[in-house]
Deep mutational scan, measured.
Amino acid sequence: MPSETPQAEVGPTGCPHRSGPHSAKGSLEKGSPEDKEAKEPLWIRPDAPSRCTWQLGRPASESPHHHTAPAKSPKILPDILKKIGDTPMVRINKIGKKFGLKCELLAKCEFFNAGGSVKDRISLRMIEDAERDGTLKPGDTIIEPTSGNTGIGLALAAAVRGYRCIIVMPEKMSSEKVDVLRALGAEIVRTPTNARFDSPESHVGVAWRLKNEIPNSHILDQYRNASNPLAHYDTTADEILQQCDGKLDMLVASVGTGGTITGIARKLKEKCPGCRIIGVDPEGSILAEPEELNQTEQTTYEVEGIGYDFIPTVLDRTVVDKWFKSNDEEAFTFARMLIAQEGLLCGGSAGSTVAVAVKAAQELQEGQRCVVILPDSVRNYMTKFLSDRWMLQKGFLKEEDLTEKKPWWWHLRVQELGLSAPLTVLPTITCGHTIEILREKGFDQAPVVDEAGVILGMVTLGNMLSSLLAGKVQPSDQVGKVIYKQFKQIRLTDTLGRLSHILEMDHFALVV
């Protein structure tokens, strides 16, 4: 994948999101292997301009796509893939009243899908469409860049269908997702969380590099694949309309690839034109409109599966009536509230959605109805927002919020430890010299600072030695090549209790 991002070429006709291997024109390309080798690009942008032909009021008969309808489940399912879809609609009884809503608040519980998330729908649909058009064949390999849930859905379907599955996901995604993927037989590649989507090191860039190296491999490409919004247009939206008897006044959905909100909203605009569509985008993402909503100094966020630093091709923002931004604290607070007060075992993005819903639905009156999409299960986040310690460490809970008995030293300040200034190293000294210094002084790690004293990161003896043994660096290389740029900081005025929580999850903390 090139470091400079080429513009994806656009073909003359058809839909841009065809499933299957992508040609340089962004659509299915038939021909000899030699032709494909000559024409197939190194990668295709996940934010390529959409060429979708959908228009409100256009006859369904003019759609270029294969459409399906929700099917009634048999008493005995032939395999677990038949437990994807037909998820329950559940009334939220307490939270709406707590925040003064007059309307009825309903939750579409997508964590009841077989793999635990709304992404099971698009995973199965992308595979079925690729099999139907002859792209996927027995023994082929599926590769997908994902925040985890699409990966789980694909790995689940691949396990049943017999495909090899490789999932490329950023490091910030939970260990629970990784464990589930491994249990399903998927191979996992992790990428830096802070890598831009168009960087060769991003999950998108690495996935395309693997595709170019592995024979008979395919990126189904949830960011561009029409099967993504079509899955929701054909099934999720129809289920909502049936469950609500066609009567709903507002739908609120958090947005990642945009397939969920695009597919549902398009069908609702056709069948229930008075329904307002509300999009939820986390602070630090750029999906919301108008652009002024996205202006923030924050560039990272903890909530998973929603928000991006690019506009995915499948996201149709014209069908969203209003956007709201959400933050991590309210997302996790509301997710825990949904679990504790409503018994809905949902993930953090569901918290984002409901946090926005109780604001947006203030305009609705008694007798009206708001539906929220709860995308995934708490299963993926047992060591994250479900953990009091994690919430404390991230600053989303305060010590006084917890009532468990603490040891005698818990409320003492870090400054009472009488710490001395640490050994520091410059980023320009060599790895070999740094190892000598650390061994001589008896230290395992040291902060790396520039000549102005600005902290650049941390270097550890173990990481340097393993990097040297693996051949990633040489003793003569500058130590700046092996620094940890993500590390926890703590102030002298913070409590030892807070430091204790940090050290339970990290090997060190830097006192500043």
Score class of each variant (00 low, 15 high):
residue 176 E to D: 07
residue 133 D to P: 10
residue 215 P to I: 06
residue 245 D to Q: 08
residue 124 L to E: 11
residue 36 K to H: 12
residue 47 D to H: 06
residue 152 I to N: 01
residue 260 T to D: 00
residue 99 F to Y: 13
residue 166 I to R: 09
residue 165 C to I: 05
residue 151 G to I: 00
residue 249 D to Q: 07
residue 243 Q to T: 14
residue 267 K to E: 06
residue 157 A to M: 08
residue 59 P to S: 14
residue 41 P to H: 11
residue 87 T to P: 00
residue 149 N to L: 04
residue 96 G to C: 15
residue 228 N to E: 00
residue 28 L to S: 11
residue 275 C to I: 14
residue 190 R to D: 01
residue 150 T to D: 04
residue 267 K to V: 08
residue 33 P to R: 12
residue 182 R to G: 12
residue 45 R to D: 10
residue 39 K to R: 14
residue 75 K to L: 13
residue 268 L to C: 02
residue 18 R to L: 11
residue 229 P to M: 01
residue 125 R to N: 09
residue 10 V to Y: 13
residue 225 N to F: 01
residue 233 Y to Q: 02
residue 161 R to L: 04
residue 232 H to K: 00
residue 119 K to L: 02
residue 85 G to Q: 01
residue 140 D to P: 05
residue 239 E to M: 00
residue 258 G to C: 04
residue 125 R to V: 04
residue 119 K to E: 06
residue 99 F to T: 10
residue 11 G to Y: 12
residue 181 L to K: 01
residue 221 D to N: 13
residue 152 I to S: 01
residue 39 K to M: 13
residue 133 D to I: 05
residue 233 Y to G: 02
residue 38 A to C: 13
residue 170 P to F: 03
residue 139 G to W: 09
residue 237 A to S: 06
residue 179 D to M: 02
residue 230 L to M: 14
residue 49 P to K: 09
residue 7 Q to H: 12
residue 227 S to F: 10
residue 97 K to R: 11
residue 126 M to P: 04
residue 18 R to P: 05
residue 209 R to S: 11
residue 37 E to I: 09
residue 229 P to V: 04
residue 6 P to L: 15
residue 127 I to G: 02
residue 156 L to K: 01
residue 197 F to K: 06
residue 107 A to G: 15
residue 184 L to C: 07
residue 42 L to A: 10
residue 32 S to V: 09
residue 219 I to H: 04
residue 30 K to V: 10
residue 61 S to M: 10
residue 39 K to F: 06
residue 66 H to V: 14
residue 176 E to V: 01
residue 161 R to V: 08
residue 75 K to M: 15
residue 193 T to I: 09
residue 237 A to F: 02
residue 150 T to S: 03
residue 123 S to G: 05
residue 151 G to N: 02
residue 111 F to C: 03
residue 56 L to G: 05
residue 55 Q to L: 06
residue 265 A to D: 02
residue 60 A to W: 11
residue 209 R to C: 08
residue 150 T to H: 01
residue 195 A to P: 07
residue 64 P to S: 04
residue 56 L to V: 13
residue 118 V to A: 14
residue 48 A to E: 06
residue 88 P to I: 08
residue 131 E to A: 11
residue 116 G to Y: 13
residue 40 E to F: 15
